[in-house]
Design a protein around this nucleic acid. Structure first.
Lengths: 142, 142
DNA sequence: GGAGAGTCGTTCACATTTCAACCACACCCT
DNA sequence: AGGGTGTGGTTGAAATGTGAACGACTCTCC
């Protein structure tokens, strides 16, 4: 259980640290940042709402809310989904992409500083496979 | 960065799974459960508010809220702190302890099922030290 | 070709978290 | 003593998260 305790505390502390950094750097929340990242990686810089919410970062309704926020900030736009009349596409705007490019280095820096660079290659490897195993199980269960 | 991605997704997914289990088993939220656990472990089943909030589980004001909820549920009581007139002690009640004892096995089961038991001894060890290192750094920084 | 079941995104009501401001008390220092 | 500073806990407003319910659409299968 020590493992679990450490995991829990660390993930919360790290989450806070990241939130703080992102807020300071660009006024973004962590969920918002994750959304931008995923959109930037998607082909055409766009993605279906449901698909986006499956990233485990946010629930469906939280996503609706966050996309609205990002739309107000001019970083994302909604578009009709061709071929599926109910669907909505979230599309990254130019401004959104630029913002992401501006913020990403600082974010990565924090993650490295507190997590990645503290670990040996073996530890990092072990943690990654551990996380991936668990992730796979959790995803398959629902 | 794959490591980070995996870590992030997994912690969110796991968090949801746990929340779901606790809610079903006892109508508790995860933060509430953590509070009960820490109180149960504390000498005299009691702890200062601020100390409790340093566990990284919740912020000060969130703690005030949660303790109020737990008080309504009869699982915790507030008491004056002898020797410090401003202080408040959160005290675990009999009912709170019984509830915890009833719920804990199920909770532990979930954590084992999804995280602990999926890992080899070495992986578990590596992950634990990794988490502890990071935790130490994060705590020292503030 | 149409009924029923499932999916998509939004909305609602509500629970919770955050941040800043606040009051009361403790501590320090002379 | 007693003023300044710090700490402990609470509060209020605002932001965000959740789950259930909804309306619109698609799909499947007869």
């Amino acid at each position: 259980m020590a493992a679990w305790r450490a995991f829990l505390s660390t993930s919360h502390l790290l989450e806070r640290r990241i939130e703080e950094q992102l807020k300071a750097a660009a006024g973004l929340t962590h969920p918002q940042y994750e959304i931008l990242v995923r959109l930037a990686e998607a082909p055409g810089h766009q993605m279906r709402m449901t698909e986006l919410s499956r990233g485990a970062v946010v629930s469906k309704s939280a996503l609706t809310y966050q996309i609205t926020q990002l739309e107000k900030a001019g970083m994302v736009e909604r578009a009709k989904c061709p071929g599926d009349e109910r669907g909505v596409l979230a599309v990254l705007t130019e401004a959104g992409l630029r913002c992401l490019e501006r913020v990403a280095p600082g974010h990565v820096e924090v993650v490295r500083e507190y997590l990645i660079d503290r670990l040996s290659r073996e530890e990092l490897q072990a943690m990654t496979t551990a996380m991936q195993k668990t992730e796979a199980v959790l995803r398959s269960r629902r």
